[in-house]
Amino acid sequence: MQLSHSEFALAPAAERRRFVLQARPATLDVAARALGLGDTFAMLAAAAAGAVTALRLGPQEVLLLLDPAGADDGLSALRAGLAGVAHSLVEVSDRQVGLDLSGALVEAALASLTSIDVAVAAFPVGMATRTLLGKADGVLWRTAPDRFRLEVWRSFAPYLSGLLDEAARDAVF
């Protein structure tokens, strides 16, 4: 059975450079200002400006997704802002891949994998969190009511794609 695109679609996300920024919360606030993303990164939320999107995944952890076109400027601003302040910035561009999930069945498919409530009331657009999907970790970010970005470690992508595809097909019944 083939699902229509409006039911469920899974596609590689647009190319991004990725960095894990870790620091004490006050330092992360400094980073937010340096990147022009406000005074703080709100917990479990995405913030975007220019080429930079930041997902606050933990009190001391932010995942930065950068459009390659403007990545260097963003990184320069960040490094300048954090100069002399204790932090860790590690490139993970190749550690993980992005998958765009969309369609009317996307919530049902995800609900087969994660124990968190993905209904829009509980997981609104702009929310982002790491969670357990089946037997693999992934970062789930809702980009639209019927659209999620899933960031997973590279070697887990085939497993999660297979699981999501099967779950979406089951969700028809």
């Binding site: 870790q22 620091a23 204790a86 860790s88 550690r95 993980q96 470690w153 590279r154 070697s155």
Partner: peptide, 12 residues
């Protein structure tokens, strides 16, 4: 301690 850990197993 001001130190942070990042898994880079799959980066390389």
């Amino acid at each position: 301690l001001d130190v942070w850990l990042t898994s880079t197993t799959e980066e390389w």
